[in-house]
Amino acid sequence: MIKSFVMCVFTLWVGLSWASQVTVKDVLDRDVTFNSPAQRVIVGFYPEDYMAIGTEAAYDKVVAMSKYIWEARSASWEMYVKHRPSLQDIPEIGRVDTQTFSVEKAISLNPDVLMLAEWQFKGLGSDIERLENAGISVVVVDYNAQTVERHIKSTELIGLITGQEARAAKIAEEYKQTVENISKRLAAANLPQPKVYTEFGASGVQELGYTFGKNMWGAISTMAGGDNISAPFVEWWGQLNPEQVIASNPDVIIITGYETGKGTDSMLMGQGVDTAEARKRLAGYKDRLGWSSISAVQNNRLFGAYHGACRTILDAAMIEFYAKSMYPDLFSDLNPEQAYLDFYKKYLPVTPKGTFMLSLDN
């Protein structure tokens, strides 16, 4: 009994002595002070990024998380739980978007750091002050914006929270190099910009799904050299008028999906998804009312992408995928899907199997 108590005190002392106080600016340019590495963390968003950057061991210090964003990708969540069953035991903290996030529970868990996405921070409003008054350091990160600056900043912040600054710097540099390589080749080639349309295909062929303006897939399509037809009409995300899609006449169409959808014709992509089934779902969009006149449909330039591979440090491979889809000759040497799998091999403890990028023409 005494021996166990002494060991607990020693372990705590070692952990605290290893940590050092840092003051950083988060993505909102807020000064935030906390001990690095943090010993008790609540992960509000970006759970896979937290593991990739902080290592699997970072989850030893996670005292709660908003699980829905991971559990919504059920096959991916099951893959991780099979590898690390203790993920299931991490307490659920609730969702900001459904107003079920429990401030009281967060405070009771006595975390050092609460990591939130920008939209979560804004959604919590005055509750942020309650959390900070309880001694919790709130750090805001943001991969949703899909800018190189915020991707790098968010990666560095997670590196500081988890004590993995060197690993974070390496991952951030690799992301930056991917974007710069594509940008330089596009600038040197000086080719006409293809018009591109991206749609989240969870609703299926009969119902036009959400598209993206200046963030998420919209930003990715722009970084990859495309003329995003949704940008003039949608700021962040929303639906276009079906006639507007036809009138804009995109050269390339990319339909994104998760492992599950709302109906039998929903676009399916991701962990455990059969490529033949995914291609069959994608082909169904050729028969959408009015789409036969669209250039992308006439030329079979329809593609599928895994929606879970966006708004994450893993999405450098998706930028390559968009670039190759729009400029197949210029980027013929790229292998985006292998790049996606290689990231898992280098930085994550699981090996995904399924369909993450797809061309109708293959």
Rank of each mutant, 00 (worst) to 15 (best):
I2T: 09
I2G: 05
K3R: 13
K3G: 03
S4Y: 08
S4I: 11
F5V: 15
V6I: 15
C8I: 09
V9K: 02
V9I: 10
V9R: 03
F10D: 06
F10T: 14
F10N: 11
F10W: 11
T11V: 13
L12D: 03
L12R: 08
L12E: 12
L12Y: 13
W13G: 11
W13P: 07
W13Y: 13
V14L: 13
V14W: 13
V14A: 14
V14K: 06
V14T: 13
V14Y: 12
V14D: 03
G15F: 08
G15K: 03
L16G: 00
L16V: 15
L16T: 15
L16C: 11
L16Q: 08
S17H: 13
S17L: 11
S17I: 05
W18P: 12
A19H: 10
A19E: 04
Q21M: 14
V22D: 10
V22H: 11
V22K: 14
T23I: 09
V24N: 09
V24Y: 11
D26Y: 05
D26T: 02
D26R: 00
V27M: 05
V27R: 11
V27P: 00
L28F: 02
L28E: 07
L28S: 05
D29Y: 04
D29W: 02
R30P: 06
R30Q: 14
R30D: 13
R30K: 10
D31N: 14
D31C: 04
V32M: 01
V32N: 07
V32I: 04
V32H: 04
T33N: 00
T33A: 05
F34T: 00
F34K: 07
N35Y: 05
N35S: 10
S36T: 00
P37H: 08
A38V: 01
A38N: 01
A38H: 00
Q39H: 02
Q39M: 05
Q39S: 06
Q39L: 06
R40K: 12
R40S: 07
R40E: 10
R40H: 10
R40I: 00
V41A: 03
V41E: 08
V41K: 01
V41F: 04
I42K: 03
I42Q: 05
I42C: 04
G44Y: 07
G44D: 06
F45A: 06
F45Y: 04
F45M: 04
F45I: 04
Y46M: 01
Y46T: 02
Y46C: 05
Y46G: 00
E48I: 06
E48N: 02
E48F: 02
D49I: 00
D49Q: 01
Y50G: 10
Y50H: 09
Y50C: 03
Y50L: 06
Y50N: 10
M51S: 06
M51N: 06
M51K: 08
M51P: 02
M51H: 09
M51D: 07
